[in-house]
Design a protein around this nucleic acid. Structure first.
Lengths: 367, 367
DNA sequence: AGTACCTTCTTGATCGTTACAGCAACGAGT
DNA sequence: ACTCGTTGCTGTAACGATCAAGAAGGTACT
């Protein structure tokens, strides 16, 4: 009876060292069996792997490896608010999907964290074991941004104002919004209303005046509104007179509730520009509930071309942005930075208006 | 001019040790400044934190801490197929949301990884730095399950056949399905069709015979079919004669395509039981496309009560499961296990049928 | 025979932190 | 004066791996 069978002090735990000793080889050799098969004879490697399986050693400890190598194989994604928001927003989901696909290539996973409230603590950002950070559409000046930068790891930003030295993957939000509004004015619409997603984290809903519009902390919202304003002015509309209604959350229900009073009002709009498809869907529901025909009496344009846009009745006219591709672009930047290659922000993607069934000529006799 | 200002060899990198030496205190003290404020005087702590900010030290390195403490503050989530699936399935999203909420409490993040193909490599499972694994609805016998278990860390399973010693959070899928079918037969329906999500990873679509039904590798699907079969038999229907159509993916479009030929056939069903709301939505679309009125000529029941179910036209009758709560339950189990407390699987949740507008009495004269 | 060169494996140092025991100083209680 | 208990801090030893050199042995070439 050999000494191998001695009782172990801490049964469930087998380390690389223990395995090496059991086999009478050095740690480095075991390590090489996993990481550099060409550094040892195939026969020994087999023996090591076999014995590892017997003892229940499932490979080198990821954390120890992470410490030594300076890499853990995880990219942190900081999303705004709670994770539920990111999960329930189809746009975010598509972006994450593209990102995940690109990183999967290297076996890198996504570590999701919510940015937390502006005045919250930032421990999770400081403590997360990640090789890089992706910041997704955080509000301007969120402290988590600084915290992430301080980690001294690569950072890539998705849809946000540029930070010095940090690559960004953005789109021409203003241009897309302008195209949407131009589409409506070209169709003869003069009574426009705008549905906006939240402009700040304060969960306010209701009409947003020019001040609030300009001081929106979400760059995406600010840009889209600015683009819409420009296009409206270009068509001779008085932007200050265009009702811009902020929805407390970016979902159909919130939009439906926001639009309903306008439709029931004195001078109901004949066209609605919704800053997202989620809101656009809500607009369609509000119209249906109010008995307003789309696009007969009311035209609706969305933004994003999320998967649901084509499935509404009528199908939603919208500004298409290549979500998955953009996610992949972010992934590519991260990979480049991690590989030590320089990463340059791609130019903001041009957006394309997809005309579907929810828009039509302005009614001859509105009201 | 003191020696402190000597040129650093590797500029961007400040370690806890470097900071300690700069301040002339021991490493342990700096560590305590971050981890155990009560172990040093407030004055010194302030001084340390201030100097840390100056030097750009953003707290102890997460990996080194992870190694030392044996915890990284991340829970791995293994989802089937690609991440895109998990992201695009509203059911999965809700579950993940609940899970994230519960874990956020401890500042723990979610590390998402796809399980990968059955014959794929498992490096990502072995290499991921996580404190525990959550396995979400993987097919029976997927090698990633074994790989996760071998890591010797806590594992919690979501919707899957029990593994010895592993806590599970499940629901009474069979009972829910039975309730759905009973609802239909109670309404007088005799011509039933079933739309199923994928039964295996082979992406097959089309009619599924009894053999395939019974050999489905996804436990959830198997259970729901079994429950439906029981209820059908109980109502005097010949289950073998009920068309069960498998959809290649769990989305509305796939279901629409699967149901269309049945509706155009000789003896179209008067009732459809869809194994998920995603499929149920597709069934509604198929009916609309075929000019079949719902629920006048065709009743449709879904499963899950995902957020979209209430928003279809007509609103979808469905089997409601408490998705977010179940996600939280998983999180609670994980927390318990990580805290060394015993974790017992909660009993499978009972499911409730929510009757909405998509079901009605069987037409008096079918066809 | 001498030199050079692989292949295969080992040794020693290092990654950056935290746990734990220890130790000095100090006021308080007897 | 003597123990006792705090308060604050330090020193040392892990945590579990990877990497860069180097040693031992065999092959090959001059």
């Amino acid at each position: 009876m050999s000494k191998n069978e001695a009782a172990e002090p801490h049964p469930g735990r087998v380390t690389l060292l223990a395995l090496a000793q059991d086999l009478g080889v050095s740690r480095a050799t075991v390590s090489n069996a996993y990481n550099r098969p060409d550094q040892l004879s195939p026969a020994l490697r087999e023996r090591i792997l076999a014995r590892a399986a017997e003892l229940g050693f499932s490979g080198p400890d990821p954390m120890a490896r992470g410490l030594r190598r300076g890499r853990v194989g995880a990219v942190g994604v900081l999303v705004d608010e709670g994770l539920s928001y990111a999960f329930s927003d189809p746009t975010a989901v598509q972006l994450l999907d593209g990102l995940a696909r690109e990183l999967e290539e290297d076996g890198v996973g996504l570590l999701l964290h919510a940015s937390g409230p502006v005045d919250g603590d930032l421990q999770h950002v400081r403590n997360a074991a990640v090789d890089a950070w992706v910041l997704q559409s955080l509000p301007d000046g969120h402290p988590a941004v600084t915290a992430a930068l301080e980690r001294g790891r690569p950072v890539v930003v998705l849809d946000q104002p540029v930070l010095p030295g940090v690559p960004v993957v953005g789109v021409d939000d203003a241009g897309g919004a302008a195209a949407a509004v131009r589409h409506l004015t070209d169709l003869g619409h003069r009574r426009l209303a705008v549905l906006s997603m939240p402009m700040a984290a304060d969960r306010v809903s209701g009409p947003a005046d020019l001040d609030r519009q300009r001081s929106a902390t979400y760059a995406v919202v600010r840009e889209r509104l600015a683009g819409a304003a420009t296009a409206a002015a270009g068509a001779g509309l008085d932007w200050a007179a265009v009702p811009v209604v902020e929805c407390a959350t970016n979902d159909p229900e919130s939009a439906r509730a926001a639009l309903a009073p306008l439709l029931a009002g004195d001078q109901p709009p004949t066209a609605v520009f919704a800053l997202s498809d989620q809101l656009g869907r809500g607009a369609i529901r509000a119209a249906r509930a109010a008995g307003v025909s789309v696009p007969g009496a009311l035209s609706i344009v969305g933004f994003d071309d999320s998967p649901a846009a084509a499935g509404t009745t009528p199908p939603l006219t919208t500004v298409a942005q290549p979500l998955r591709e953009r996610g992949q672009a972010v992934g590519a930047l991260v990979r480049a930075l991690l590989a030590g290659r320089p990463a340059v922000s791609p130019p903001p993607a041009e957006l394309r208006l997809v005309v579907r069934g929810s828009t039509g000529p302005a009614p001859a006799d509105p009201r």
